[in-house]
Design a binder for these strands. Structure first.
Lengths: 241, 241
DNA sequence: CGACTAGTTGAGGCCAGTCAATGTTGGTGG
DNA sequence: CCACCAACATTGACTGGCCTCAACTAGTCG
């Protein structure tokens, strides 16, 4: 990848970043973009398995995923981990801490990844003079709320096969939005993490993937997945009345 | 209640509102409060069962619950309803729409209630000149994220009895924060709504309430609930490793 | 009082969890 | 390059928790 180490390229990171429209969906003028660039403090690389922040850490800023993917998860008191979300390039992580000044979840890289760090104090200052950024910020928070609401819907009222179908379709849609194939992709997470996210056990996830394959809905080869019959998958997770 | 119809009292609604610290947790100066008052457009009364907004409605503003309580819920395509939250006095509803300009959930009064309306355009204008409000606004969104994350944890990894215990304790804590008893209160919602929120059926909720009573953890009399043994309830929903 | 909604309780079945054995993959070091 | 190991994944047998269906009761409101 073009992971710039040269200073010149760093100077206009955002303006040339292919993930720009995802990070900052509302149109920014060129001068705005120049300002945004001053926001991004540094880019951090994470190796697979490395932790970006932990629950309890003070919130120092937000992070934009530039390359790779992360999971965020919360811990119950007894140590059980519940995956709260998977985050790919162009998405913002760290929002969970903005209510309390500390993070309530932790974020771990699922593969070698790179994130842009946006320190909080710069964010606040910049947001004050820049209504557009302000609006974007709120939009992120609100979008996160919407996302979580659909997860709650899923966990609360869907059966296992419906959840998995919805999960696969969602992943596909997100890859498509990034210019990748929406029907053929590689799972970056383990069966256990998928299960945790969906409120299922890893065995159930594995069994269902096998069954979906047998039924001709998908093809699975380890972590590689091909969605063969998306209408049927949609049918599966949609109406059942 | 002192539901003011006189204009003078309306002029300084927020300054005297007992729910102030809940609505606006970050200290506001007196002049700030005066400004906030200009924010609150009107107070609306809702009879039990009345709808405050529906999914698809354009987002016109936020609502602060002043008296009573509401539920918010989302609809699946097939018409199933999933309760997303219960909201009591001092809480803000309507945040769900801020990502998209339209509401994604609907809000219904569980009892006769009263909400303060905060029109969006005033909110935006005021927030621009008032960093404190700005921060409060973000804080609400972020707090909502945190709340939903714990619901996800609950739905994803707790068993039925754990969920119900957590639910009862949460309700108690919220009543206590409002100056009511935290161990003796009235459920404002039906068993079915509780079940929908917890991802259970109404029968399971009913059975569990009976069982909790048999075990001496609570006392139930229709919608009246007394928490008799909170430590045990906490034990129930906490560690099980 | 009848009609309706909300709630309780029971019987039975199924979906998904648990436990366990085996297979597969990828990384590491000799 | 291969052997080895650990983590990840698959599959089967069994169990049990929760859902479904159903009957019955308790309030509530015209």
């Amino acid at each position: 990848m073009d992971v710039g180490v040269t200073l010149p390229s760093l100077k206009s990171v955002c303006a040339t970043c292919s993930m720009r429209e995802l990070c900052m969906p509302i149109g920014l003028s060129d001068t705005d973009l120049a300002h945004i660039d001053t926001l991004v403090g540094a880019r951090t690389r994470l190796r697979k398995g490395e932790t970006l922040y932990r629950a309890g850490d003070p919130l120092t800023g937000l992070f934009a995923v530039r390359v790779g993917s992360l999971k965020t998860a919360v811990l119950a008191e007894d140590g059980r981990e519940q995956v709260a979300g998977f985050h790919m390039s162009g998405e913002i992580v760290g929002l969970d801490g903005m209510g309390t000044e500390w993070h309530v979840s932790h974020a771990v890289a699922l593969e070698d990844s790179e994130v842009c760090v946006m320190p909080l104090e710069r964010l606040e200052k910049l947001a004050h003079d820049m209504p557009t950024l302000q609006r974007n910020l709120r939009r992120f928070l609100a979008r996160e709320i919407g996302r979580q609401q659909s997860v709650m819907l899923m966990l609360g009222s869907m059966r296992a096969e419906e959840r998995l179908a919805a999960f696969l379709l969602d992943l596909g849609a997100r890859y498509r939005r990034r210019g990748y194939s929406g029907s053929e992709f590689v799972l970056r997470m383990t069966r256990e993490e998928i299960g945790s996210y969906l409120g299922l056990t890893l065995e159930t996830v594995s069994r269902l993937l096998s069954r979906f394959q047998q039924e001709g809905l998908i093809r699975v080869q380890g972590r590689g997945v091909t969605l063969l019959d998306q209408p049927a998958l949609r049918e599966l997770c949609g109406r059942k009345a």
